[in-house]
Simulated scan of single mutants.
Amino acid sequence: MTGDQTASLIYLVLLGGVILTWYVVANRGGLGKMAQHLAAWGLIFLGVIAAYGLWADIRQTVMPQQSVFAEEGRIELPRAPDGHYYVTLDVNGQPLRFVVDTGASAMVLTQEDAARAGLQQDELFFFSEAMTANGAVQTAPVTLDRVALGPVTDRNVRAYVNSGEMSQSLLGMSYLDRFARIEISGGKLVLER
């Protein structure tokens, strides 16, 4: 446990002790009823702790993930709560998460994702320029050895690395054009080859 977690735990224990003491003093006459209330609040408290501890598992179960139907050559991407579509691609053997951006003409990697994909920072030359909603940015053209999405694998894929700050890599039209069909319907983005 870190120092902050320990301090939070001590605070919660003290707060719980103060509330329990107040409750016992206020309800001295009906100890049986107080025990019932105490048990109910204890179960609620344990339920909250359990839900907090299991939230990552619950979220993964409740929030749909991308689905790959290899035999049909179809990939389905669910709409995220923020309204965007996200996809995880295997880029040079590394799983990288992209936001699908039909407004981007090319596949654009953040510098962090480029490093994870094995592209050396000192080998990137930021001589090209891209226009974004925030203005012009310098980009470095690169060739990705291997990009895979489910059963679909492409080799020597052209992309760019953004020189500026970018929170998410973009999957633009240069990659999406490789699919025979792109459809958005019923909260899903469907890609087929």
Rank of each mutant, 00 (worst) to 15 (best):
T2W: 01
Y11A: 06
L14R: 01
G16I: 04
G17I: 01
V18G: 02
L20P: 00
W22S: 10
R28Q: 14
G30E: 13
G30P: 00
G32H: 10
A35C: 05
H37E: 10
A39G: 01
A40E: 06
A40R: 11
G47W: 00
A50Q: 07
D57T: 11
I58E: 10
T61C: 09
T61K: 11
M63V: 14
Q65K: 13
S67V: 14
G73I: 01
G73Q: 02
I75L: 08
P78D: 04
P78T: 07
R79H: 05
H84C: 06
Y85I: 03
V91I: 14
Q94W: 02
L96W: 02
R97W: 02
R97F: 10
V99W: 03
T102K: 06
G103A: 11
A104H: 05
A106F: 04
M107Q: 12
V108D: 07
E112F: 03
A114C: 07
A115H: 08
L119W: 15
Q120I: 09
Q121M: 05
Q121R: 14
D122P: 05
L124S: 07
T132E: 09
A133L: 07
G135A: 11
A136G: 06
A136R: 15
V137C: 08
T139D: 02
P141C: 09
R146Y: 03
R146C: 04
G150M: 07
V152H: 15
D154F: 10
G164K: 02
G164V: 00
Q168F: 00
S169R: 05
L170M: 09
G172A: 02
S174Q: 05
Y175I: 12
D177A: 06
R178L: 04
F179I: 04
E192A: 12
R193D: 08
